[in-house]
Amino acid sequence: MSDEPHDPTGLDLASEIARAAVESAAYGVVLPDPAPQRQPRRPRRPMEQQRSGAHPDDRDPQLVGDVLDSVIKQRGWQRRISLSTLLRRWPELVGEANAEHSTPVDYTDGVLIVDCDSTAWASAMRYSASQLVARLNRSLGDRTVLRVDFRGPKPPSWKRGPRSVGGRGPRDTYG
């Protein structure tokens, strides 16, 4: 063991090797090749596999869009991409005025839930729900959206706040 400190980067060793190589080249010393390079052997294939037909197959270059479509289908990302498209294009799909007063909030099993600013907007948009479903399916893919539910604002809760009553509450006033 030597008393010299260990160089974790290995720069000292690399510079020593480089210096030795330069000196050996200057004196005409030829260092042996550490490992002879062998050419890799190509596997032999039957002639039928090497021929290319007149029609496209898997070995031909593929279009980027086709490759992305196959990856999306394999990974099951179609629904997520459709939803992000829906959220991004919501004003275009329902119109600017409707988009200002409505927001898609949930999509589960083909049912799109949309929250509206008021019950009047929710009622007005319910009249055009079938046309909206058809338009969404045209732009997102067939049978992506089966139904659209429009909800108005949530009513106030009487369980908390200044008008809350402890115990059973005001049940006796209704009957």
Score class of each variant (00 low, 15 high):
Lys159Ser: 15
Arg171Ile: 10
Lys73Thr: 07
Ser15Val: 13
Val105Arg: 08
Pro104Tyr: 00
Ser164Lys: 10
Asp33Gly: 07
Thr119Gly: 12
Val145Met: 02
Ile81Pro: 04
Arg45Lys: 08
Asp172Leu: 12
Ala122Ile: 07
Thr108Lys: 14
His6Ala: 09
Asp117Gln: 08
Pro43Ile: 11
His101Lys: 11
Val114Trp: 02
Ala25Arg: 13
Arg138Ser: 14
Glu96Ala: 14
Asp106Pro: 01
Gly110Ser: 03
Arg42Glu: 04
Asp117Thr: 10
Arg80His: 06
Ser15Met: 14
Leu140Arg: 07
Pro156Met: 04
Gly95Asn: 03
Asp58Cys: 02
Ala124Pro: 00
Ser24Ala: 15
Arg143Gly: 07
Arg59Asp: 14
Arg168Thr: 09
Glu100Pro: 00
Val67Phe: 06
Leu31Tyr: 05
Leu86Met: 12
Asp33Cys: 11
Ser130Leu: 08
Pro5Ile: 02
Gly65Leu: 09
Thr9Trp: 05
Tyr27Lys: 11
Val71Ser: 02
Arg151Lys: 15
Gln62Pro: 08
Ser128Thr: 13
Trp158His: 11
Ser157Glu: 10
Asp7Tyr: 01
Arg163Ile: 00
Glu100Ala: 11
Asp7Cys: 04
Asn137Leu: 04
Pro153Gln: 05
Pro170Lys: 02
Leu112Trp: 01
Pro46Val: 04
Tyr27Gln: 12
Pro8Asn: 06
Pro153Ile: 09
Ser24Asp: 15
Pro8Asp: 09
Val29Glu: 06
Asp12Met: 10
Ala134Ser: 15
Trp121Gln: 03
Leu87Ser: 10
Arg19Glu: 12
Asn98Ser: 10
Ser128Cys: 10
Asn137Val: 08
Gln74Phe: 05
Val67Tyr: 05
Leu63Tyr: 03
Ser118Asn: 06
Gly76Pro: 04
Arg171Pro: 00
Asp7Leu: 00
Ala124Ile: 02
Thr144Asn: 03
Pro34Ser: 03
Gln37Arg: 13
Leu86Tyr: 06
Val29Ile: 14
Glu96Cys: 01
Trp121His: 11
Thr103Phe: 09
Arg89Leu: 09
Val145Ile: 08
Tyr174Glu: 09
Pro104Gly: 00
Asp117Glu: 11
Arg44His: 07
Gly166Ile: 08
Ser130Ala: 13
Asp106Tyr: 12
Arg38Thr: 13
Ala97Ser: 08
Ala25Asn: 08
Cys116Asn: 01
Arg135Phe: 03
Arg126Leu: 08
Gly10Asp: 06
Ala25Trp: 08
Arg80Thr: 13
Arg59Met: 07
Gln49Ile: 10
Ser70Ala: 10
Ala124Cys: 00
Val105Pro: 03
Val165Gly: 02
Ala124Gln: 14
Ala18Glu: 10
Ile113Cys: 01
Glu92Val: 12
Ala124Gly: 04
Gly166Leu: 05
Ala21Glu: 15
Glu92Ser: 10
Arg79Val: 15
Ala35Val: 13
Val94Asp: 01
Gly169Val: 03
Arg59Pro: 04
Leu136Glu: 07
Arg44Thr: 09
